[in-house]
Amino acid sequence: MQFKLIINGKTLKGEITIEAVDAAEAEKFFKQYANDNGIDGEWTYDDATKTFTVTE
Rank of each mutant, 00 (worst) to 15 (best):
M1T: 08
M1I: 08
M1H: 11
M1F: 08
M1N: 06
Q2F: 12
Q2N: 15
Q2E: 11
Q2I: 10
Q2T: 14
F3L: 02
F3T: 01
K4Y: 15
K4I: 08
K4E: 02
K4N: 08
L5T: 01
L5C: 02
L5Q: 00
L5H: 00
L5S: 00
L5G: 02
I6S: 09
I6Y: 14
I6N: 09
I7Y: 10
I7W: 11
I7K: 01
I7E: 01
I7T: 08
I7A: 05
I7F: 13
N8Y: 12
N8G: 06
N8E: 14
N8K: 05
G9R: 09
G9I: 09
G9D: 08
G9F: 12
K10N: 04
K10G: 06
K10V: 07
K10H: 04
K10E: 03
T11A: 04
T11W: 05
T11P: 09
T11D: 05
T11Y: 11
L12A: 03
L12Q: 09
L12E: 06
K13T: 08
K13H: 12
G14S: 09
G14K: 07
G14C: 03
E15Q: 05
E15D: 15
I16P: 01
I16F: 05
I16H: 05
I16R: 10
I16T: 10
I16D: 02
I16V: 03
T17N: 05
T17F: 10
T17V: 12
T17Y: 12
I18L: 11
I18H: 08
I18E: 04
E19V: 02
E19F: 14
E19S: 08
E19Q: 04
E19W: 05
A20C: 03
A20T: 13
A20P: 03
V21M: 14
V21W: 07
V21S: 12
V21I: 14
V21G: 10
D22S: 07
D22H: 05
D22M: 06
D22E: 10
D22V: 08
D22W: 07
D22N: 08
D22I: 05
A23W: 15
A23G: 15
A23I: 12
A23H: 15
A23D: 13
A23P: 12
A23T: 12
A23K: 14
A24F: 09
A24H: 04
A24Y: 14
A24T: 08
A24Q: 06
A24W: 14
A24I: 12
E25P: 04
E25Y: 11
E25D: 13
E25M: 07
E25T: 15
E25W: 13
E25A: 10
A26Y: 00
A26L: 00
A26E: 00
A26S: 05
A26W: 00
E27H: 11
E27Y: 15
K28I: 06
K28S: 15
K28P: 03
F29T: 07
F29G: 05
F29M: 06
F29H: 06
F29A: 05
F30G: 02
F30Y: 14
F30H: 01
K31T: 04
K31L: 04
K31Q: 10
K31G: 03
K31C: 02
K31W: 08
K31I: 06
Q32I: 11
Q32M: 15
Q32H: 14
Q32S: 07
Y33S: 03
Y33M: 05
Y33G: 01
Y33Q: 07
Y33I: 03
Y33W: 07
A34C: 02
A34L: 07
A34G: 15
A34P: 00
N35P: 02
N35S: 09
N35L: 13
D36Q: 10
D36W: 12
D36V: 12
D36H: 15
D36A: 12
D36L: 13
N37E: 05
N37I: 13
G38K: 14
G38W: 13
G38P: 01
G38T: 14
G38V: 10
I39Q: 08
I39R: 01
I39W: 09
I39N: 03
I39K: 02
D40S: 06
D40P: 13
D40N: 13
D40V: 06
D40G: 08
D40F: 12
D40L: 14
D40Q: 15
G41A: 03
G41I: 01
E42A: 15
E42S: 11
E42F: 06
E42M: 15
E42L: 10
E42K: 15
E42D: 15
W43M: 14
W43K: 00
W43Q: 01
W43D: 00
W43S: 01
T44V: 12
T44I: 12
T44M: 15
T44N: 13
T44G: 06
T44H: 14
T44A: 14
Y45P: 00
Y45V: 04
Y45L: 03
Y45S: 02
D46F: 04
D46M: 08
D46I: 04
D46P: 01
D47E: 15
A48V: 11
A48D: 07
A48N: 13
A48Q: 15
T49G: 09
T49P: 03
K50G: 08
K50R: 09
K50N: 09
K50T: 13
K50C: 03
K50I: 07
K50H: 11
T51I: 07
T51R: 09
T51Q: 05
T51H: 09
T51V: 13
T51F: 09
T51G: 03
T51A: 10
T51S: 07
T51M: 11
F52T: 01
F52M: 07
F52S: 01
F52L: 02
F52D: 00
F52R: 00
T53H: 08
T53L: 05
T53D: 02
T53W: 11
T53E: 04
T53K: 13
V54E: 00
V54M: 13
V54G: 00
V54H: 01
T55Q: 10
T55A: 14
T55K: 15
T55W: 15
T55F: 13
T55V: 05
E56C: 05
E56M: 07
E56R: 08
E56K: 08
E56N: 10
